[in-house]
Design a protein around this nucleic acid. Structure first.
Lengths: 245, 245
DNA sequence: CGGAATCTTGAACGATTTCAACGGTAGTGG
DNA sequence: CCACTACCGTTGAAATCGTTCAAGATTCCG
């Protein structure tokens, strides 16, 4: 199923064993493996290449693999019981997909994964991951931290989406993207995902997002160039949040 | 700190050892304990009584205890980094509070817990819970399921809140409350939480919620009596959902 | 049972969506 | 390498939806 792809000039470079090892090492809950275990793990992996808008896996499907993004961009989408869709977040190089299925009872994916552009992922059999979590307590601990982080981020999202007005949601999002140790000067936010999907994530239309960003720009609070957004005045930005209890 | 309360006519009944045992047994990830372990656990527990609007614990505080609700009602609130609040859910008798801290790195609460009326909770030292999870694999497995469920529900909430219009959010909520095996006839939904807080959870004002429910009632799709809401026509309800991609 | 809080309903305002059209960008294929 | 095309992002104007403010009815808790 996941075979080693034909060596093309553009992909070959990214698929060298050494780079794959680095990639896996970069995953916190896999980084603690000794060299031997890592080699064993890598033997069972394969690379899968996705076209833009292709689905990697579907929500509720049996989770047979866990993925690490090699390059490209994947968005995670939750479809509600009634068929409504919600963009949860996007994953870039080094991020993992489907690892939450390790904890879900029957081992099914908790969301859909869709490539937003040409994307390559490293596929690891889920059974291998389970073995690792069983046998390596330090990996398990890291994985639990990962779970807590995920849960915390989703709770943050909820706090964000509960905001009544669109500007508050946008500002909350921007403030969340800022580095923790907030320096006085300019702070850069990389808009990793297309604005269209960011708008969906913030529960507004692309038009509204565009207008709100324009307004912040006109007031001299931010500047935007492509995917590079610079916050010039964090304090002024914070003033756009409304109060309630 | 958590001492056995003075026996008053209203509380005494609820605090009999036998009933406490039943309560703990009802928690899935504690129910698997043998009698002996359960008795040991109960020895370390205490009951805490909260007045209405009193805080049981605050988000990010070190989690020293896990709680089981004996009676009353507690709402879980997440406060965003910017100070905004979001009602996550409410917990009734038999539900647990703060158990998610078992998985968060430093062991801090992931949200605030506030009593919505006079409420009593059983307090269990977090260290005891950790021991149980370490020593009893079957409890650990149940706890993992609990985690997955929590995560899934939060994702459902996100899918719900991403909906643009208020009616869709309300309908999604109602559909989610319906029993899974959907019978043709009438289906009852118990509105456990005050409408005011339900409105907050659905990211709308109480006035809007009231109007939307009135509209559904006028159209003969639901009936409401106190906390008892009956869905007369599930299909018609579903038609209120808007479509998007 | 009494008081406080919640729930309901009305009207006006404000915010966001919708529809439509345009400029720009990126990716494709010649 | 450049032109072409399709999609994304932006901007404008009108309509709709939801909020706000205010007052009354009801319910719930102690």
């Amino acid at each position: 199923m996941d075979t080693v792809p034909a060596p093309s000039s553009s992909t070959e470079l990214l698929l060298r064993p050494r780079q794959l090892r680095e990639l896996v090492r970069g995953v916190p809950w896999l980084g603690g493996l000794d060299d031997e275990a890592l080699e064993v793990l890598l033997k069972d992996t394969g690379v899968r290449t996705l076209a833009s808008r292709e689905w990697l896996f579907r929500q509720d499907a049996p989770a047979r693999r866990v993925y690490i993004v090699i390059n490209g961009l994947v968005r995670l989408v939750r479809s509600g019981r009634d068929g409504r869709l919600a963009t949860i977040r996007c994953v870039e190089r080094g991020g993992t997909l489907g690892e939450l299925s390790m904890v879900s009872g029957p081992g099914s994916y908790l969301y859909c994964a869709e490539a937003l552009r040409r994307t390559q992922v490293l596929a690891i059999p889920a059974a291998r991951c389970r073995e690792i979590l069983d046998r390596h307590p330090e990996c398990r601990a890291e994985f639990m931290s990962r779970l807590a982080l995920e849960l915390t981020e989703r709770l943050e999202d909820l706090a964000l989406l509960t905001q009544a007005d669109a500007m508050s949601r946008l500002v909350s999002y921007l403030l969340r993207q800022l580095p923790v140790g907030h320096h006085r000067g300019q702070q850069v936010v990389r808009l990793t995902i297309p604005k269209r999907w960011l708008a969906a994530q913030l529960a507004m239309t692309p038009e509204t997002l565009s207008r709100l960003l324009a307004r912040l720009r006109e007031e001299g609070i931010i500047t935007i160039d492509r995917q590079r957004l610079v916050v010039l005045d964090e304090h002024a930005l914070r003033d756009f949040l409304l109060d309630d209890d």
